[in-house]
Structures are given as structure tokens and as C-alpha cells.
């Protein structure tokens, strides 16, 4: 079973929830893998402190042009939707950082002037945090395309439970993460920003067709509009976790609040039960 933890807004406590849930499921005797799909800013490792056992570089195929074979027909330029290849006089230039690796130019070139070479997009690291399987992706600095790396991280799913820590937002990398999850937890906080971004995340989850529930973090700050919105939209609020400075402090030093803050685990129990129940 795959559970994705997502949120429109960043900093709502996604990673805290995801890492603590992974450990709780594991302590309940289940086989668990935690996959950090926030490849732009992966943080799960700070809390789980895994032993990294394997490191794999992920590449995308990008075109290179053999200028001797090129007849400047512009067919490659025409097919490219990303302005990543252009004929300038007698030369055809590739702008690697714009290329989405669709392969169109390579297929369309009438003279086979185009071949493909690898561009590094990042690395995936694999390991274990105690019994919990761990993997995360690290996007190369300056690289714009994160979905291919998210895909590579997702291949590390376990045949037991997989906790997917999604990147914030509602565009491609978040969609890629939640796409085939069996349950999506949308984490929010009851503030105007939190609610606005929750609505966007709900739109995304509905569009993807995911089964989703809401978890309200720092539930006693802000106002009651988030609760009202969920009631009105008939969205289940599975858990509400009150604000606690001790959790914030524990987080700041990379601790797990289920171990560092007495009583914290109780708030997550309804989620653990739902996940375990969902698998049966």
C-alpha cells in the first residue's frame, strides 16, 4: 500500500508526519519504505538518519548534433515544443537546459545528424533507517526538471507499506508523486495561506482521482475556516495535531517527536490505524 503525504503549502509539517508515520508503521511490525520525493529540497534524511548503501546517478537523454550531417532543414526546430534546439545559419544548436528529452528531434531528423547523450539530473540514494527502507532523490543544482528524478525514487517502493513524502505545490512533481498512491494525506494548517493552498491541493487530488483525507497540523492556531471548508466539502479530517513548541524545537534539531515529545504519537494513531485498516 502506498500513502502519499502532500500539501499545497510548504512548511505545514509534511516531512514530520511522513517520517514519524514510517517509524510507527514499522514499529507496528510492518515492512515499510520511506521515499522522499521532494527531490528539490529533500529533508527526510535529517530525521531518519539512514545508512546510505547505494547511490545511482539519474540521466536524461539529450540530443547532440553532428554538424557535418546536418542539412539545416529545421525539422528538429519545428518539432521541439521547448525551444531547446535551433538552426542558426549553418549550425544547429541545442540548449540542453531547456530540453525535456522527448526524443522528437532525434526521431525526425532526416539525415541522422542527431544522436543522444546523457545529461545528469540528479542522484537517488538508497539505504535503511533501522528496519525502514529509505530512498531520496537530490536534484542537481541548476536542473529544472524534477519529475524524472521523482519517478526514479518511486521505483524503490516496498511490497509492504510505502510512505511517499511529496514536494509542496500542485504542479508536475507533486502530481507525479501522488499519481498512484492508494491514499493521500493532505497536510495543512488552519491559516488563510494554509486554507488557500489546501483548496488547490484538493483540486489536484480530485483531478488525479486520488482517495484523500486532510490532516490539520497546528490545529489551534489561526481560525476555524479550514474546518468549515472541510465540513462543507465533505472532506474527512482524519487527525488534528495541536501546536506545540516542543515539537518545533524537536524538529529544529532533527529529532522525531514521537520519541521526543510525550503524547505526540497519540495524535497520529488515527492515521496509522487507517493505513493499516486500508491495507486489509
Amino acid at each position: 500500500m502506498k500513502v502519499a503525504i502532500a500539501s499545497g503549502k510548504g512548511g505545514t509539517g509534511k516531512t514530520t508526519l511522513a517520517t514519524n508515520l514510517a517509524i510507527m508503521l514499522s514499529r507496528a511490525g510492518e515492512k515499510v519504505a520511506y521515499l522522499d520525493c521532494d527531490v528539490e529540497e529533500p529533508n527526510g534524511h535529517i530525521f531518519l538518519k539512514p545508512n546510505i548503501e547505494k547511490r545511482e546517478t539519474v540521466y536524461l537523454p539529450v540530443p547532440v548534433v553532428d554538424q557535418d550531417k546536418c542539412i539545416s532543414c529545421r525539422k528538429c526546430e519545428e518539432i521541439c515544443q521547448y525551444n531547446a534546439i535551433a538552426c542558426m545559419g549553418k549550425k544547429t544548436l541545442v540548449f540542453q537546459e531547456l530540453c525535456h528529452a522527448c526524443g522528437g528531434c532525434y526521431l525526425v531528423c532526416p539525415t541522422n545528424a542527431i544522436s543522444e547523450t546523457d545529461r545528469e539530473v540528479g542522484v537517488v540514494e538508497d539505504g535503511h533507517a533501522g528496519p525502514v527502507g529509505f530512498a531520496h532523490g537530490k536534484l542537481k543544482i541548476g536542473e529544472a526538471l524534477s519529475p524524472p528524478l521523482v519517478k526514479a525514487v518511486k521505483q524503490r517502493a516496498s511490497d509492504g507499506f510505502t510512505v511517499l513524502d511529496a514536494p509542496p505545490g500542485t504542479s508536475c512533481p507533486a502530481v507525479e508523486t501522488i499519481m498512484d498512491a492508494d491514499l493521500v494525506l493532505l497536510v495543512t494548517e488552519p491559516t488563510p495561506f494554509g486554507l488557500n493552498d489546501l483548496k488547490l491541493a484538493v483540486d489536484m487530488a480530485r483531478q488525479v482521482g486520488s482517495l484523500f483525507v486532510v490532516v490539520v497540523n497546528r490545529s489551534d492556531i489561526g481560525d476555524d475556516k479550514t474546518r468549515k471548508y472541510c465540513d462543507q466539502q465533505r472532506i474527512e479530517v482524519l487527525a488534528e495535531i495541536p501546536n506545540d513548541r516542543r515539537v518545533a524545537v524537536c524538529y529544529s534539531t532533527g529529532g522525531l517527536p514521537i520519541d521526543g515529545v510525550p503524547g505526540y504519537a497519540d495524535y497520529l494513531l488515527p492515521i496509522v490505524e487507517r493505513i493499516l485498516g486500508g491495507a486489509r
Binding site: 510548504g10 521532494d38 528539490e40 529540497e41 536534484l139 543544482i141 541548476g142 536542473e143 529544472a144 526538471l145 524534477s146 514536494p167 509542496p168 505545490g169 504542479s171 512533481p173
Partner: peptide, 10 residues
């Protein structure tokens, strides 16, 4: 700006 280091931030 946007969070992260990917396409919208760049």
C-alpha cells in the same frame, strides 16, 4: 518566489 530549487524557482 517559489519554494524549492527547480523550474519555477529558476
Amino acid at each position: 518566489g517559489a519554494p524549492g530549487i527547480g523550474c519555477p524557482v529558476i
